[in-house]
Amino acid sequence: MMLSPTKLEGALDRLLLADANALDSKDMTGWLTNYAEEEQASYYCRAAENTEHNLELGFMFDDCRARLEDRVIYVTEIWAGTFQDYRTRHFVQRVSHRQVDASTAEAMSNFSVFMTPMDTGVTQILAAGRYLDMVRLSGDGRAKFLSRRAELDTSVLPRYLVYPI
């Protein structure tokens, strides 16, 4: 069944905001729940410069559900206590979308991410770019990411990344 335009926009925007909220709250478990529970669920974070030159390598290349689950472990267990922590604020703006079939939609959004390292307190821009999302729609009008690609205009990051973008 195809969703009404209002319902589809509502479902997509709730997902976009839920992801921004999970990331900015450093809630990695919450971040994971925004992804479909399917083996091919994926998240990529990559400089758009690479993509434009057919270079697939990314900053983060989580091409299956197992890797998404591993990323939660990286942040919450393996890296805990080793980095200078920072706050982020994601600003996300959906710019286009379409429903592909009854259970799938695709969406493109712009993002900008501010970061404030805890030790300096000076706010900087961490990255700007676009999300290219493939979204799984369920019958009850909920949406989850089947695939999210964060394509960064920022080809040179201003610091190392701990959390996904």
């Binding site: 990559r46 400089a47 410069e49 690479n50 270079l55 697939e56 390598l57 990314g58 900053f59 080809s155 040179v156 990051l157 201003p158 610091r159 190392y160």
Partner: peptide, 11 residues
């Protein structure tokens, strides 16, 4: 064979 880049500035 090139796979791609990760570029960053360190303080």
């Amino acid at each position: 064979k090139l796979l791609g880049y990760q570029k960053v500035r360190y303080d």
